[in-house]
């Protein structure tokens, strides 16, 4: 039956050229963007299916938790609430002060507080690619460029919105760069992802900058338009070589960015 039609070699040549053309068009132009948006409505249900074992696991964990562990968790949560309530009081006074100061400066930059809670339904299968899928889409008011936060701060931003789902690019992805500011002294830097979930790289740090290893790098405050006012703790580990004006620093993200079942898209 294979005597008919073009030979496998000829077919391979044609299809390989076609694949290369598709790849080039996909990566160099935006002609496929419309198709991609529509196609992800069909492909994301597959991610739903693969998430079922995880959901069953979480459900059974909820159902089969022992009384002792529940009591312990309850106790820990109560303690945490106390700490957080104290911080909230401090926060309220600081917010009021901040508003007054901003009024003095005639600044229109206010921090909004609208948060949409989303759940993670899929992770990019490629280990080099740090993208996750969330169960909120255009219908819920998710838009491209929306910052995504977890309990420790900024996680990423929404890069693709389908009807009921969205894709989030994490700040640790190697294609993501983020302008940041050191909380302690206001130094501005660029934090790049490196394809490693627990590391960011600070580019072009001059050797005279006041950045210290460990806690003193403290909090880097993202300064990008999409995420002003959110913070992500980063402890730094500088690698400076003498004779260089600029060096690159590695930073450890606080807590590490683990794909967690729940995260929130804010603002």
């Amino acid at each position: 039956m294979f005597a008919k039609g073009p030979s496998p070699g000829a077919r391979l040549a044609v299809l390989a050229l076609l694949a290369l053309a598709i790849a080039l068009i996909y990566s160099k132009t935006d002609w496929f963007d419309g198709v991609r948006q529509r196609v992800s409505d069909f492909t994301i249900p597959l991610y739903w299916v693969t998430d079922i074992p995880g959901q069953v696991g979480r459900w059974s964990e909820d159902r089969l938790a022992s009384k002792v562990s529940l009591q312990e968790e309850n106790k820990a949560l109560r303690t945490e609430v106390l700490v957080l309530k104290r911080k909230l009081q401090q926060m309220a006074s600081l917010t009021a002060e901040n508003t007054r100061l901003r009024q003095l400066l005639n600044s229109a930059d206010t921090i909004e507080d609208r948060v949409l809670v989303a759940e993670l339904i899929g992770v990019s299968p490629d280990p080099m690619k740090h993208k996750v899928m969330i169960n909120r889409g255009a219908v819920d008011g998710v838009y491209i460029g929306q910052p995504v936060v977890d309990a420790y701060g900024l996680v990423g931003q929404v890069v693709e919105v389908a009807k009921h789902t969205g894709r989030v690019l994490l700040i640790t992805d190697s294609s993501h760069a983020l302008p940041v500011q050191v909380n302690r002294n206001g130094i501005r830097l660029v934090a790049e992802g490196r394809g490693n979930l627990s590391e960011l790289q600070l580019r072009f740090v001059s050797s005279t900058m006041d950045i210290q290893e460990g806690r003193s790098a403290g909090h880097l405050r993202p300064r990008a338009a999409f995420s002003a006012g959110l913070s992500r703790g980063v402890g730094g580990k500088g690698q400076s070589r003498s004779g260089q004006t600029f060096c690159d620093c590695d930073g450890k993200t606080h807590g590490g960015i683990e794909p967690q079942p729940a995260c929130a898209a804010g603002f």
Binding site: L15, A16, L18, A19, L20, A21, I22, A23, Y26, S27, F32, S40, T43, S124, P125, D126, K129, K131, R167
Partner: peptide, 10 residues
């Protein structure tokens, strides 16, 4: 997988 289209095809 949302990779570059054409990679796995080729």
């Amino acid at each position: 997988e949302d990779g570059v289209w054409g990679g796995h095809a080729l």
